[in-house]
Design a binder for these strands. Structure first.
Lengths: 355, 355
DNA sequence: TTGTAGGCGTTATCAG
DNA sequence: CTGATAACGCCTACAA
C-alpha cells in the first residue's frame, strides 16, 4: 500500500499538493494535477478515510437506529428494509456511510454519546415510540444541536425534524373505501397508543366515518400491538360479532392477516369474511389470501427524504457534485417545515371488494 | 464538551494516565483510578472514537454488504433482517459497530478499498452470487489478507471463510417428508444455478428421492428466481400437469406461495392442491393459506457465527470481557473449518399434510 | 505506578 | 499556484 509520501515523490510535488488534487480543492495547474493523478494511480494509493475523518473531525457516517426486532416479528421487516434502502441510497449520493445500530431492549439508548464520540455526524431514528427515555434522549440531542431525524413517529410539542407519511389521510381513504361501498359496521384494529402513527390512524378513521355521517362504535374498536398474534386475538371478538360487522380496517397488514387467520381457524369461510383493508402495503399484503387491500406508505422515499433533510447544507463535497434532489420536494406535502409528510395511497385488492 | 486535558488537570494526573484508566490498561493505583473516574464523570468527558481509531489505525467497524433490494423483492427482507440482527448482536458484544452498504446493481463492488481506506476492519458479505466480478473482488480481498466472511454462498475451490446452513440436508428432509407420506410425483421449483444454495438444494432433492428409490423427473424440475412472480409462472406448468403431481417443493417460501397463488388464480381449490413445502421458514410461511411447511434456516445464528469467526483473536478488548461464545460450537456441524454449516430443520404445517 | 514525548495520515493555514 | 508546517486527540513505548 503506497503512501502519500511516495505519490508526492513520484509526481515531484509536495504531499499537500497531492491532497489538494485528490480532494479537488484549491486552484491547481492542470499539468500538476495530471502528474499527481498518474502517480497516485500507478502506485495504487488510497487515502485513509480514518485519518481524513480525524483531521476534519467528521466521521462521514450517518447513524441509523433500528428497533430491536430479532425473533420478535412485531413489525414487518419489510418496512425497515425499505426505509433503510432509501436511506442508504441517498446517503451514498452524499458520500456518507451508514452506521446502523439496534436499539437495546432494556438499557436506555444514549444518542448523544454517538455524536460526542464522533461515531456519526448525523442520525436517523426509526421505530421510536413515545416513552420517557426515548423522548429524553432526543431532547438532549436537540439541545446539544446535533442533527437528527425521527421517522414514522411524531413528538407533539417538540421541534424535532421528522419525516412521516400522512396516516390520517391513509386511514380516511380506507374508511371511505368502505363507506363508499355501503359498509356501515366497520371494525378497527389499531396499534398501541404510544405510537403517534396509531393516533393518526384513529383520527383518520374518525374523519372518514364522520364524512359518511357515522361515528366510531367503541365496541368495534380493538387494540392490538401490530403483531400477527394480536390480530388473531382480535379475531375472537370479530368472529363473535360477525353478523354485525361489514368490514375490518387494521392498522397494519400483519394484524389484518392475523384476523383473517383467526376467522379461518374458527371455521369461517372466505365467502363470509367481512371486507378487509390493511396498512403498509407490505409484501405480505399481496401474498395474503385473499390478496389484501392496503394503504401504501412510501417507506423508501421517506428514507431518502430523511437523509436529504439532514444533509441540507452540510454535504461532504466529495462525490456529491451531481446530486439532484428531485425527490425532496415534488411529492412532498410539507417539506420546508420540520415535519414532512409524504402522501399515502390506498391499494385495492380482492379482500375489500365483493366478488 | 470537556477535553481530556481538563480531566487530567482536575484529577491531578497526566493525560496518559487518563487514557490508561479509561481503557483499563496498565497497572494503576486504585486512588488514581478513582480520581480520574470522578473527574471524568464530573466533567462529562467522552473520548473521541475517531481519534482512538486513528491512533490505533483500526476503525472499529464491521462492514456488512447487503444485496441491492429496494423495490425488487426478489428476496425476503426477512432473511436479511434476521442475519443483520444476528450480526449486530454479536458485533455489539465485541464492541464493534456495523457499517452497512448496499451492493450496487451495475458497477462492480471494490471490497478491498473498504479496507484500504480503513473504513472497516473486517467485513461480511451477504447475498453474493457466483459471478465473475464478485468472485474477483473476493479473491483480491483474500490475497491481501483482509478478514471477511461470505454468508449463504459457497465458492468452490476458494478458501474463503464461509458461513452457511446445511441446505443439502434441509432439502433432503423436505423430500423425505413427502416420500414418507407416499408422495411419488414431486415437483421441485428451484432458484438460479448461480447461487450455490440452489445447487445444494438440488443435491438434497436428489438424495432424498434416491433414498426412496426414486429419481428426479426432469419434467418436474422448474427454475424460478426466488421471486413470488416466478412461482406464479411455475404454477402454469404445475397446473397443467396437476393430475400427475403429488407434491411441490420450492426453494424458498416466496416461490411456494407464488405457486399456490397461481393455482388459485386458475381456479384450483385448496382441496385439490398438491402438498407444499417451502424454504427459509420466513414469516410469510406462517401467514400463508394454508400455513406453509418450510425448512427452517437459522439466519440469526448464522449472523452471530459469522462475526465470531471474524473476531477470533482480534477483539477490541473494550467491553468484551464477558463475551461467552456459546453459540459458536454447540450446534455447529463444522465450525473449525473455513466453511461452517449450521443445521436446518423441517417445520411441518398444514400445507404438506393431508387434513 | 506514572509522566514524557513521538507518532498516526490528513487537513488547513500561511507564507512564498 | 505550491510548499512547509502546525494542529487533530489519542495511544504507547520508553523513562523515571
Amino acid at each position: 500500500m503506497a503512501s502519500r509520501r511516495e505519490v508526492a515523490d513520484l509526481a515531484g510535488v509536495s504531499e499537500a499538493t497531492v491532497s489538494r488534487v485528490l480532494n479537488g480543492v484549491g486552484p491547481i495547474k492542470e499539468e500538476t494535477r495530471r502528474k499527481v493523478l498518474e502517480a497516485s494511480e500507478q502506485l495504487g494509493y488510497v487515502p485513509s478515510a480514518l485519518a481524513r475523518s480525524f483531521a476534519r473531525s467528521k466521521s462521514g457516517n450517518l447513524g441509523v437506529v433500528l428497533p430491536y426486532v430479532p425473533k420478535a416479528h412485531l413489525f414487518s421487516a419489510y418496512l425497515f428494509s425499505e426505509m433503510l434502502s432509501g436511506i442508504g441510497s441517498k446517503a451514498r449520493d452524499n458520500g456518507m456511510d451508514l452506521l446502523v445500530m439496534f436499539r437495546t431492549p432494556d438499557e436506555a439508548m444514549n444518542y448523544t454519546d454517538l455524536f460526542r464520540r464522533q461515531k456519526v455526524d448525523a442520525c436517523i431514528i426509526l421505530g421510536a415510540r413515545h416513552d420517557h427515555g426515548e423522548l429524553a434522549a432526543m431532547q438532549q440531542l436537540y439541545q446539544e444541536g446535533h442533527p437528527f431525524c425521527v421517522m414514522n413517529q411524531h413528538f407533539e410539542g417538540e421541534s424535532f425534524t421528522e419525516v412521516d407519511a400522512d396516516h390520517v389521510e391513509g386511514s380516511r381513504l380506507a374508511i371511505r373505501h368502505f363507506t363508499d361501498q355501503g359498509y356501515r359496521k366497520i371494525a378497527f384494529v389499531n396499534g398501541p397508543d404510544s405510537y403517534s402513527n396509531s393516533q393518526e390512524r384513529m383520527e383518520g378513521v374518525r374523519l372518514g366515518l364522520q364524512e359518511a355521517g357515522m361515528e366510531l362504535d367503541p365496541g368495534l374498536l380493538l387494540e392490538g400491538n401490530y403483531s400477527r398474534r394480536s390480530g388473531i386475538e382480535a379475531s375472537a371478538i370479530i368472529a363473535e360479532r360477525l353478523h354485525e360487522i361489514d368490514a375490518v380496517f387494521a392498522a397494519n397488514d400483519r394484524m389484518a392477516i392475523g384476523v383473517m387467520h383467526g376467522l379461518r381457524e374458527r371455521g369461517i369461510r372466505v365467502e363470509d369474511f367481512p371486507a378487509f383493508v390493511g396498512y403498509d402495503d407490505s409484501d405480505a399484503a399481496e401474498m395474503a389470501v385473499p390478496p389484501l387491500s392496503s394503504v401504501r406508505v412510501p417507506f423508501f422515499e421517506m428514507g431518502e427524504l430523511a437523509v436529504s433533510k439532514l444533509m441540507h447544507g452540510s454535504v461532504d463535497g466529495a462525490d456529491t457534485a451531481d446530486t439532484t434532489d428531485e425527490a425532496s420536494d415534488s411529492k412532498v406535502i410539507r417539506s420546508e417545515s420540520i415535519r414532512a409528510l409524504l402522501p399515502t395511497e390506498l391499494i385495492i385488492r380482492a379482500s375489500s371488494t365483493r366478488q
